[in-house]
Structure formats: structure tokens, C-alpha cells
Write a protein that binds this DNA or RNA. Structure first.
Lengths: 220, 220
DNA sequence: GAGGTTCCTGAACCCATGCTGAACATCACT
DNA sequence: AGTGATGTTCAGCATGGGTTCAGGAACCTC
């Protein structure tokens, strides 16, 4: 079992390394975001323990990078205690689990166990579905015919979520919660408005409406 | 997706039920350990949300009972905040995941999603009986010849219930209660109307009428 | 086969939901 | 402060789907 530990605090590392090794993991260690990201890109780890507060590159970005590139290895995120929005952010970014600091080593081991027991999930996806692709760096959509449209921030988040769940029905509440953070209520018709704006850019028929249910990105 | 919620606090239940239903789960609820255990023993749930502090029988015992009897359905455990030993106990007893109270509903849904995705890999949620299959994500029927028809919300719920009970006679009252929530009386001829609409989509003869008794999905 | 009951069917109704265009508010940047 | 871009709210319109109704067909009982 190969494990990547991305953590900058030397004290933490000193505490964790022996415990992880004793638990039977072959541990690699990176002390900053960039190093961690590179290791995660290239080495076949069974699981990653990722701190969020990292020098050089935030943990969340590292995680998003992996997910955006289809890297679907199990990631356990370490967050500050009680920062529940961080945890939700982490889960949204594709974390499989989180643990609030400070934590007990025993608990970390238990959770790693649970994670590695899991079968590998479905293959990672590129954010491209049937000729509709999202340029995540440029924040643009590219259509089949090469046409590209720039997206505003909200449009981008909405489309990204749709593309991550092609063919699935997504309720307005779900969309609301993913486009904005936390418990946003679909008070106004915000989602409708943005769906409309997206449709203008990617084509009316690519997003179906399911009355009373939500919306669905059409997959051909 | 059938979900069993074992939780005694009425306020929690009131908050969770609608959210879970909105997320597409068919939710059964038990208010104590013994009831929950029995339901879990007998019904084919896709996932269980289990509170640990339960009257009549502690959640951990319920979980251990299931695991000891080879019941391997995914279980998410709700624990008191910061009771980390409880969480470790839970994991040792065979929980697949846990969540500390108080938690955010969105977080619960995210974790349930992860759990159910893992448990039913690529199986694609479909209910199928003799060449008649219901695409639960897409809310569509697919016939033997590949023909597909989109379903409205009510049609969908009705057909799903029929498919879950193929070959059984289902009275209009039963259908009413499952298509709508609970105590609805079959005042008008609503069910008749919907049966008709369904027949139009899946074929006249797939649903038999049993005069005075109800309807039955024909199984060949 | 008369009479009653149950079910079928097509159509009409009506309302919640969704769509749309535009105004208004807010933010970032200069 | 001014400007342009983005985010949010609003009001009116369109429409889909849930519901009701009425007339006819099928079925059962006597």
C-alpha cells in the first residue's frame, strides 16, 4: 500500500510518518503543494493524505488539478477543526474523506483503512461530453464546430457541474448548492436565468428541462 | 434507491426526510434500534443512515448484528460531535462512513452519493422486468425494441412501483398511496388515467386489469 | 338482455413551473 | 467617482402536466 502524505508542518510529519509506516503503508512525503501534485501525478499511490494549508499551492487546488485530469485515487483531506465549509469545499473538489485537526492517529488509520478497502471508483472524466468541452484554464466552452464562448464565473461553475454529471437529472437545489456555496435556497429564479444564458452559448437543446425535477445535460 | 433512516429525534427526521426524498431516495424511517434492525434485516435497502444514540437498542449493536449476519449494505453512521472514539468504534463495527452532528444536509447528501456510487458501480440504476426497463436516472422507460419514452413525474412513480412488484395485484388505493404520499384516497379516476397513459407508452397489454381488485404488471 | 357497476378514453380545465427580456444592484478595475 | 462586466431580481407570458369530467365500453349478476 503506497501512501502519499502532503503536509508541511514538520511536527505533524514527525508524528504521522512512524504511525503510518507501522500500519503498513509505504509512505512518500511532500512538504508543499507543488511537490505533492507532481508526485500524485506520476506515482501510483493507493491513497493520499492531503493537508489543505500548504505553501506554494493550496491543497484544494492540488486536488482539483488531479480530478480535472482524471486522477481518481482516494484522497483524505486534513482540514482545520470545525471549518465545515472547507470540508464541503473539499468534498466538492473531489475528496473522498476528510478529517479535522487536531485528530487522533487511530482515527486517521481507521479512515485510511476504510478508504483503501474501497474498490477503485469509476474512471475519471475529462470535462468533455459529446463535442462539448470546457476549457478550465481559459474559462470557456468549446463547441463541436470550434466555436468558443467565454463564460462568466457563475456560468462556468454551473456548466462544470453539469458536465460532471452528464445525463443525470440535477435539481435546482442541487445546482444552487454547487454553484454557490452551502445551503443556498433557490429563492429566486437564478438557476433558470443561468440555464438560459448557458443555453444561449452551448445550444438550446443541450440542456433538457424536466419539469418539477430539474435539468439534465443531454448525452448523445 | 431505497434508504433506511434510523433516527429517533423527530426534529432531525423532519429536517432530513424531505431532503432525502428530494435527492431521489425512497425513504423508510425507523425511530428505534429494534425497528431499524428488523427493517434492515428484511428490506433490500441501498444504503442506511444510522444514528448511534437510539432507544431500545444502540446503533452500534444494530450495526454489529447486521455485519455478524453477513448483511453488507452500506451504512453511514451519525455520531455526536467530537466523539471521535464513537466514530472509530463505528468504523470498527463495519460502518462505511460517519458524519458528526450537527452536520449540513448537503454534506450528508454528498456522502450518500459517494456511498451509493461505490456500492452500485456502473450498474446504472435500472429496474427491469422482462424487457421492460426503467432508467431511474433518466426517468425514462426503455422497451425491448430499444424504443424509449420519457416519463412525467407521476407516470414515473407509478411505473416504478409496478416494476417493483411485478406479477402482484396492486389495488388502486395502494397505487394511490405510493404514487402520492400516504393517505390519498382514490377520489377521482386518477389512477385509471395514469394507467392509461402508461399503457400508451409501454404497451397496452403489459398492465392487466383485474376488475374490482386492481392492476398487475404482466410478467412473462 | 336489463340493469348496475367498473373501467376506459378523450378532452378540457387550471395552476405551478419554467422561460424570457429587461431593469436593477453589485463588484472590480481604473 | 466612473465604467463595464457580472450577478440578482422582477414581471409577464407560455406551457406542461396534474386533475376533473362526461360519455361510452366492458363486464358481472340476476
Amino acid at each position: 500500500m503506497r501512501l502519499l502524505l502532503v503536509e508541511d508542518d514538520p511536527a505533524q510529519v514527525a508524528a504521522l510518518l512512524p504511525a503510518l509506516k507501522a500500519a503498513g503503508f509505504a509512505v512518500d512525503h511532500a512538504a508543499d503543494g507543488i511537490g505533492g501534485e507532481q508526485l500524485g501525478d506520476t506515482e501510483p499511490y493507493d491513497v493520499v493524505v492531503l493537508d489543505l494549508g500548504l505553501p506554494r499551492r493550496p491543497g484544494l487546488e492540488v486536488l482539483r488539478h488531479w480530478r480535472a485530469h482524471g486522477r481518481d485515487l482516494p484522497v483524505l483531506v486534513l482540514t482545520a477543526r470545525d471549518a465545515w465549509h472547507e470540508r464541503v469545499d473539499g468534498l466538492k473538489a473531489g475528496a473522498d474523506d476528510y478529517l479535522g485537526k487536531p485528530f487522533h492517529v487511530e482515527e486517521l488509520l481507521a479512515r485510511l483503512n476504510a478508504l483503501t478497502r474501497r474498490a477503485a471508483p469509476a474512471a475519471g472524466r475529462t470535462l468533455a461530453v459529446d463535442g462539448l468541452s470546457l476549457d478550465e484554464d481559459g474559462q470557456r466552452v468549446v463547441l463541436e464546430d470550434g466555436q468558443t464562448h467565454p463564460l462568466t464565473g457563475t456560468e462556468f461553475r454551473l456548466l462544470r457541474y453539469l458536465l460532471r454529471n452528464p445525463g443525470r437529472i440535477l435539481s435546482k437545489t442541487q445546482l444552487m448548492e454547487h454553484v454557490y456555496d452551502l445551503d443556498a435556497e433557490p429563492s429566486g429564479n437564478l438557476i433558470e436565468v443561468y440555464i438560459r444564458r448557458l443555453r444561449e452559448k452551448i445550444g438550446r437543446e443541450r440542456i433538457e428541462t424536466l419539469r418539477g425535477q430539474g435539468y439534465r445535460l443531454r448525452r448523445r
